[in-house]
Design a protein around this nucleic acid. Sequence first.
DNA 1: CCTACCGATCGGTAGG
DNA 2: CCTACCGATCGGTAGG
Lengths: 196, 196
Amino acid sequence: MARPNRKEQIFQTALALMREKGYRNTSMRDIAAAMNMEAPSLYNHISSKEDLLWQTCTRIAADFEKGLAEVNDIYFGASEKLGMAIRSHIEVLTRDLDASYVFVHEWRHLQGELREALIVRRDKYEAAFREILALGEAEGSFVEADNKFALLTILSSLNWVVEWYRPDGDMSPSQIANQLTEFILNGLNKHHNYVR
Amino acid sequence: MARPNRKEQIFQTALALMREKGYRNTSMRDIAAAMNMEAPSLYNHISSKEDLLWQTCTRIAADFEKGLAEVNDIYFGASEKLGMAIRSHIEVLTRDLDASYVFVHEWRHLQGELREALIVRRDKYEAAFREILALGEAEGSFVEADNKFALLTILSSLNWVVEWYRPDGDMSPSQIANQLTEFILNGLNKHHNYVR
DNA sequence: CCTACCGATCGGTAGG
DNA sequence: CCTACCGATCGGTAGG
């Protein structure tokens, strides 16, 4: 009766509900009902509701960090690095959409140290991303802009993908990454497509 | 003792708390405490917690709609329209940051008809915005891209402003609108700045 | 604007 | 994995 990955099933069930209704609107009884269990039984597999959120956030954060570190190891030009960083980010977001959606929207519900730890990691990730923009300026390939502003604008476009991406839709994660990269590098104006 | 705008004070207090802690994490008792009242007294001025959210969302939505309608009445070129639509959007978002933040983040907590009514209005707004992109394509001034993709990417950049805008920061709403427009039209590549 | 209070729901524990 | 249950908290009402 005891499946080896019962814990994993609880996570997937909980994340699907939390994506749909939000963290606070998803009760342990909701999760239990979706699993055909009683709420107290969940605690044989997980330690708390907040732990469901924390484990999810820390896993996604680790995926982001790993992806960006690899990009920085392998590529050297700013345009190339930026394109691959975008690709990595989109790959992480689309790999497990329930988890990504919950990460993007619900991390604020973490309390105290957990929340602060996540903020520190986010800031580090953003700083690494921002260095790519600084590199592009130093190279002379990117416009000299307000780096922080550009970074926030770029990351918002990337993270918004969790709102509308559908695995069975007409754009693959790879195509999304390509289009985002093209848009971020060249914008809407018609003059120069695919300069790279 | 009865100030004429007591209701307005409750809204401002509630929105500041909801921005900080989220809709579900803000109790009527929290709002009352911040107003130096008891929770039941709030109901002499407002009808329900959900009504606080609804009034806020519908007000912001109306501001968006009004702004975009004016832009469409006054301007004719796609680049010009887009620039002014961005300016209008940023002006609405930055006018009352607590309300805008709550609108962007918490509208999902509206139930049933209210929620659906808001989705309809959002879809209309997005469609009107999207027509500007279609106009730019027809004019030959914008690249031929996936309109829906471009729209979502643009709106995500605009809405993300509620995350980082600070009234006492170093960028005014007008400067933010200019930079966003520049970025959206021309991207990061160095070749052509300020083509317009 | 307050006191007193309601029914519902919450995350989680005890004990088996 | 369940039953039984706890203390806390919630939005809101009654009645003044």
